[in-house]
Design a protein around this nucleic acid. Structure first.
Lengths: 111, 111
DNA sequence: CTTTACGGTATCCTTTTTGTGCGTACTTGC
DNA sequence: GCAAGTACGCACAAAAAGGATACCGTAAAG
């Protein structure tokens, strides 16, 4: 999205979670800390470049934590910060609504 | 967003409301039906082309209704469908979280 | 007679986002 | 000794989103 002045809190939140893989990444991170490649495999389809970018953005926004163990071969763990965990109600709301929507969609297709 | 297979309901919902002006438009439509130009003025900054596109997409997804009065000069009213209105909890969650985030941001800046 | 408003469509262009593929430094397993 | 895995960075390319502008037909206002 191009830059735009944001006045409404709703947009603030959207600005932080809008990103092709962010919500799903957050979703998976609710299971607990994950290593980079583990996450990438779970998200099936992200390239490392994109995943890195989105995780780093979320780190910058304070919703994801990055722990670099400085080992060789590299080991990096991503996890949700408390702020990130506080997104749970939103994720739940999105999930619930999406599920209901899909059911309705299915029902409509039968007609 | 480029095309991508969607497996998770969370993504379904995000796919429908991700769009530069969609959530704010929905926000304003919670006030009641609005005419096109009225909405455009309220959203300060959208071009009519973009607003048209986003409204039509939402119409296609079933969350917005479009009533064309077939008058001259044209009169078209947009409103939320019941499905659109059912997004309220999500909007509220986004709003609440965004507000809390902004306060925290402000607090951090003072440090 | 000109301007303004309405609700768009069509065309072109810029910005933003995401993907592709290569390179890296080092270790472990075969 | 060679491949595979780890967590990226980087240059380049493609795709998608959004914006700028012109135009349309009609009518009311000035």
């Amino acid at each position: 999205m191009p830059k735009k002045e944001i006045f409404c809190p709703v947009e603030v939140t959207m600005g932080l979670i809008a990103g092709r893989w962010k919500v799903i990444a957050i979703h998976y991170l609710f299971d607990g800390p994950k290593r980079f490649n583990q996450l990438q495999r779970e998200l099936r389809g992200v390239t490392h470049r994109t995943l890195t970018k989105q995780l780093r953005e979320m780190e910058g926004d304070g919703i994801v934590l990055r722990k670099d163990y400085k080992e060789i071969p590299p080991r990096v763990e991503y996890s949700l910060s408390p702020l990130g965990k506080s997104l749970k109600p939103i994720l739940l709301a999105l999930h619930e609504w999406g599920e209901a929507y899909c059911k309705k969609e299915g029902a409509n297709r039968i007609k």
